[in-house]
């Protein structure tokens, strides 16, 4: 019974990791890819490590598994936030179907006034109404 639960958790974690990779390959722009990688990657690792804790079933392995899960849960949002902000400041283009860009208003002083935001206004004229 325990091994069956561990096996299902391992398979679930691997499936989430595959979803993360498919998202990284298929999604249209940098920001959506970052979102897919961080969320699905975190959940995949979490499921696999819970499976490990179930499989070994002793205090030592469970403590380490919980430590790794906590570490990933703390660091994944931080690194995703930093790299997303760096990409935005580096003017990585948004997807051309993007409608709302709320971050833009906070960085008006960093971009020139007449400057186009990361390449999308031309393709969707009503975007600035957001």
């Amino acid at each position: 019974m325990t091994e069956t639960i561990a096996a299902l958790l391992l398979l679930g974690g691997a499936a989430f990791m595959m979803v993360a990779t498919i998202g990284a390959l298929r999604l249209p722009d940098f920001y959506t890819r970052m979102h897919a990688i961080t969320k699905a990657g975190t959940l995949g690792i979490g499921l696999i490590l819970v499976g490990i804790a179930v499989f070994f079933g002793d205090l030592s392995a469970t403590t380490r598994a919980v430590a790794v899960i906590a570490f990933v849960l703390f660091t994944a949002p931080v690194s995703a936030h930093m790299i997303g902000r760096a990409g935005y400041l580096d003017e990585v283009p948004l997807w051309q179907g993007t409608l709302v860009d709320k971050l833009r208003a906070r960085y008006d002083d960093l971009f020139d006034k007449g400057d186009q935001p990361p390449a999308r206004r031309a393709s969707s004229p009503s975007a600035s109404d957001g």
Partner: peptide, 9 residues
Amino acid sequence: DLVAYLTMG
């Protein structure tokens, strides 16, 4: 980053 996550898994 994704490669590192996957290697951890």
